[in-house]
Nucleic acid binder design. Structure first.
Length: 559
RNA sequence: GCGAGAGUAGUGUAGUGGUUAUCACCGGGCGUUGCCAACGCCUGAACCCGGGUUCGAGUCCCGGCUCUCGCACCA
């Protein structure tokens, strides 16, 4: 990152940041109290920009027709994130020295006493720590406080006092969508594929937030969890991207220019749905005004991917900080649902009906409950499983080892088990393909790409070329001068814009007309309307385009 | 987290211990001009926070917070 950033880029970045603060896009949060690292306010202009980007994102995915929107809590019980692997992956287990109060990592203290302390659970670490009582590296004292998970996640307590139970602020929105799987499955009438999207806040207690909006402690994310049947080969329509080859940086093939259709056909992209979502991502980024020449997709190398993932592509956008990953599109296999299934014992599966019912022949042994029950008592269940797995040729009595106990199974304990079972389908854990968007990073690059510095008669002039889809203010209405009724007419037009839902209009009557255009250009207002003398006579106004500066006269009624 | 540098109106800045903290842009009001940051007058707005040294601190010292850069960390 930051490669090749010249002095001009650096001063441009300074001026851009100054403007963003001055005009109310992005500001350091809680600044009057000294500020807080990694936390930003979206200001009077930025707040609207953010929510419009969110809305475009949601609508973009809802267009697929089999996607619903969820909203899950940001406060998440410990068990959920333990099941998902975040507690293990994201934490360091810390303990404080009773002598000098210096905090140490428990796994580091126990190195040399265990082959791989990093892999131990919290309880196991605590047990080992109590046993070993290693000396404090700072003061040699051997008194250690109970281990706590010092986490890249924000700890909290759900509920007050003794009854409170531990939890975290969520590090991603995804887990709530996985835990909502049963409700999604029912909503979609038990038919794959389907997906859920969620836009919301995520939290990571980053050790060192840097580079403005690029690494935050509280961030806006937007994720899609798309559930598929791994055995179904889906056909996706790639036609819409056949004319736009993408820049792909593939794991083993280096940088390529090719269409998604080709990349999927050649197996460079390992799953068609991943490819389809890459296309959807590219289209979305264009919708919100990202320069498509500065988008590329980079494939994770094998050792970079989470162990359960089978393919992962990042959409990277080039801006003032170099190439920054803004979207991750990961094929997560069945990892997430399986993890929650294991932790809860709940079924998180889908049903796949066979084309033809399958007859399963069972020809073997099972126990005779009447005799085996009294004989094996509490072991009877385990003996049943063991006997049923024996081949038909087995002769009784037979010696078996069940749960570590040797038992003798007599002929009288068993009976022949011969039957046909008709199976019409099977249950499986759906696979998940997850496009995860860092909204703040995208928003930053939207701003970065939209920001243009011009020079007009030696003066710096700033235009934000924000897309109409996301511009925080849709229109400005100016009276050429606030007299002879021009101010009143302009206010009336402004009022009519405000009445139409979703339109943001600003009225500005102060300063010269050129100054007002300049103020509007700086926050990226696409259109400005000016009421002049002629308006009073014929009911027309001038409509000025931000990017070209051209004006045309239009009837007030046609606005 | 470690090391280095920095923090003065909304923005960019001047100010090496001594009056009422400089300048520009900026915001507001009035007037004037009458379609692209025009002009005049009036006006608004700052020494990051907390301690210390000193008769006196924006300035020196210590601690904290924030920013920038390097190292470390980083689905």
């Amino acid at each position: 990152m930051g490669e090749g950033m010249g002095e001009n880029d650096a001063t441009r970045l300074d001026r851009l940041n100054g403007m963003l603060k001055r005009r109310g896009f992005l500001l350091p949060a809680f600044e009057i109290h000294g500020g807080a690292k990694g936390l930003y306010d979206f200001g009077p202009v930025g707040g609207r920009l953010r929510s419009r980007i969110n809305q475009v994102w949601i609508n973009h995915w809802l267009q697929m027709g089999n996607i619903v929107e969820l909203s899950c809590p940001t406060i998440t019980p410990y068990a959920v994130l333990e099941a998902s692997g975040h507690v293990g992956e994201f934490s360091d287990f810390m303990t404080d020295c009773g002598g000098c109060e210096e905090g140490s990592r428990a796994d580091t203290l126990l190195e040399g006493h265990h082959p791989n302390p990093d892999a131990l659970s919290k309880d196991e670490l605590q047990e080992l720590l109590n046993l070993i009582k290693p000396p404090c590296p700072a003061c040699n004292e051997c008194q250690w406080s109970p281990i706590s998970a010092q986490n890249l996640m924000f700890n909290t307590t759900i509920g007050a006092g003794q009854s409170g139970r531990p939890g975290f602020l969520r590090p991603e929105t995804a887990q709530g969508m996985f835990t909502s799987y049963p409700s999604l499955y029912r909503h979609f009438r038990e038919r794959l594929p389907f997906g859920a999207v969620q836009v919301g806040k995520g939290y990571r207690n980053e050790i060192s937030p840097r580079q403005g909006m690029i690494r935050l402690r509280e961030f806006n994310m937007a994720e899609l969890e798309y559930f598929i049947d791994p055995e179904v080969n889906v056909e996706h329509d790639f036609q819409q991207w056949d004319d736009t080859p993408l820049t792909l940086v593939a794991d083993e093939n280096g940088e390529l220019e090719m269409t998604l259709r080709e990349a999927v056909a050649q197996g460079i992209i390992r799953h068609a749905t991943v490819g389809y979502f890459m296309g959807m991502t590219h289209t979305f980024l264009q919708k919100v005004g990202i320069d498509s020449k500065r988008i590329r997709f980079r494939q994770h190398e094998h050792d970079e991917m989470a162990h359960y993932a089978t393919d992962c592509w990042d959409a990277e956008i080039e801006g003032s900080y170099g190439w920054v990953e803004c979207v991750g599109i990961a094929h997560r296999g069945c990892y997430d649902l399986e993890s929650h299934e294991k932790a809860t014992g709940r079924t998180l599966r889908a049903r796949r009906e066979f084309d033809e019912p399958r007859m399963v022949e069972i020809d073997g042994w099972t126990i005779n409950g009447a005799t085996a029950g009294p004989a094996f008592k509490q072991l009877a269940g385990a003996v049943k499983n063991a006997v049923e797995s024996l081949p038909k040729e087995t002769n009784f009595p037979a010696q078996l080892n069940v749960n570590g106990t040797d038992v003798t199974v007599e002929e009288e304990h068993v009976k022949v088990n011969q039957k046909s079972i008709k199976e019409t389908g099977e249950w499986f854990i759906p696979h998940v393909i997850e496009p995860a968007f860092g909204i703040d990073r995208i928003l930053w690059h939207v701003i970065d790409h939209a920001y243009e510095e011009q020079e007009r008669e030696g003066e710096a002039y700033t235009i934000m070329h924000l897309s109409k889809n996301i511009a925080p203010v849709d229109v400005c209405v100016f009276p050429l001068f606030e007299k002879e009724g021009m101010g009143e007419l302009a206010k009336e037009i402004h009022g009519n814009f405000l009445k139409s839902t979703g339109t943001v209009s600003m009225y500005d009557g102060s300063g010269s007309i050129g100054r007002r255009y300049a103020r509007a250009d700086e926050i990226g207002v696409p259109s400005c309307i000016t009421v002049d003398h002629q308006s009073l006579q014929d009911g027309t106004v001038t409509l000025r385009d931000r990017d070209t500066g051209e004006q045309k006269r239009v009837n007030i009624a046609d606005l």
